[in-house]
């Protein structure tokens, strides 16, 4: 219990630091945000008026305090281009990205974990070392290039999916596969090294000594324990899926947070960029917190540490 409490309290300074950084994004960006908002034709009087209105002449600390209280109330600002609340825009695009990330996670776990178990079980003989090299190839494949090739093969040549992309099921499946393969390779490597350690344990030797079948040892006894350390990697995996969706959404012209971020940067819409970065970072921190909590749940020994 004490561990959980400590872990939860420790995220508060991290979240404060995150807001400080996202606040800094706007402050460090060259150019006057008011002119960016009003356009170049605005009169100096009008600019000064809006500056005062937005409190941009106040001390930085006051401005940060105001930003913090605004953010805590769920207000991520208003987009310059669309004049809409950034949080609303993010919420509209979140499902698209979550769909893609969930699909990729499914691909990664369903292929990566069995692959890793196979590699660990055959590590001193054929095909163990070959399997590990295949995972290096998988890790090295640029997901966006894989996606382009998939579009050429399945879109241009076979005509199974639309080349112009869009939010169809077939393009979702293809996108999830392209994004998931790299993560599957990473997961396979982690599973393999975790399994190798578990397979040296005494209870595994006991299980083989009492004549238990090899598959039962591998999948029931070893894998269940090998998966526990893998839990800690789930947060990182989630982070790289979020990053990967940036590239993949663009290839398949899917709507989602990745394309939202690219458009925001291209248009230099600072509130959109700031809101998007803060939102994604907060989600990432929360996911990592949940992963840690799940870890203590899966390994009760940690509760006494």
């Amino acid at each position: 219990m004490q561990f959980l409490l400590r872990r939860i309290i420790l995220t508060i300074p991290v979240l404060l630091g995150v807001t400080l950084l996202t606040f800094a994004i706007v402050k460090l960006t060259p150019g006057d945000p008011v002119i960016l908002m009003l356009g170049n034709s605005a009169t100096p009087e009008r600019v000064a008026e809006v500056r005062a209105q937005l409190g941009l002449d106040d001390p930085l600390l006051t401005q940060y305090g105001r930003y913090l209280s605004r953010v805590m109330a769920g207000d991520l600002g208003t987009s310059i281009r669309s004049k809409r609340p950034v949080l609303d825009e993010i919420m509209e695009r979140l499902p698209g990205t979550l769909e893609l990330a969930a699909g990729a996670l499914l691909v990664a776990t369903l292929t990566g974990i069995p692959f890793g178990v196979w590699a660990a079980a055959s590590r001193r003989r054929w095909p163990g070392p070959v399997l590990m090299s295949i995972t290096i190839v998988g890790m090295s494949l640029p997901s966006f290039w894989l996606a382009v090739i998939a579009l050429i093969v399945f879109g241009v040549n076979l005509r199974w999916v639309s080349v112009t992309g869009g939010d169809t099921l077939s393009s979702l499946v293809l996108a999830a596969l392209c994004l998931g393969i790299g993560e599957a390779a990473v997961l396979a490597r982690l599973t393999c090294s975790s399994m190798r350690e578990v397979l040296l344990a005494d209870y595994i030797r006991t299980a083989s000594a009492k004549g238990l079948a090899r598959p039962a040892i591998l999948w029931r006894h070893a894998l269940r324990n090998a998966l526990i350390p893998l839990l800690t990697q789930l947060g990182l995996l989630f982070g790289s899926l979020m990053g990967g969706s940036l590239f993949i959404e663009s290839v398949f012209a899917r709507s989602g947070l990745g394309r939202y971020a690219i458009n925001a940067i291209s248009a230099r819409d600072l509130p959109q960029i700031q809101g998007m970065v803060l939102f994604a970072a907060v989600i990432y921190v929360i996911v990592n917190l949940l992963v840690d909590l799940a870890y203590t749940w899966a390994d009760p020994r940690l509760r006494y540490a």
Partner: peptide
């Protein structure tokens, strides 16, 4: 606390 790509974008 930021995924690397997000930090790059920021």
């Amino acid at each position: 606390a930021f995924p690397t790509v997000l930090l790059l974008i920021a």
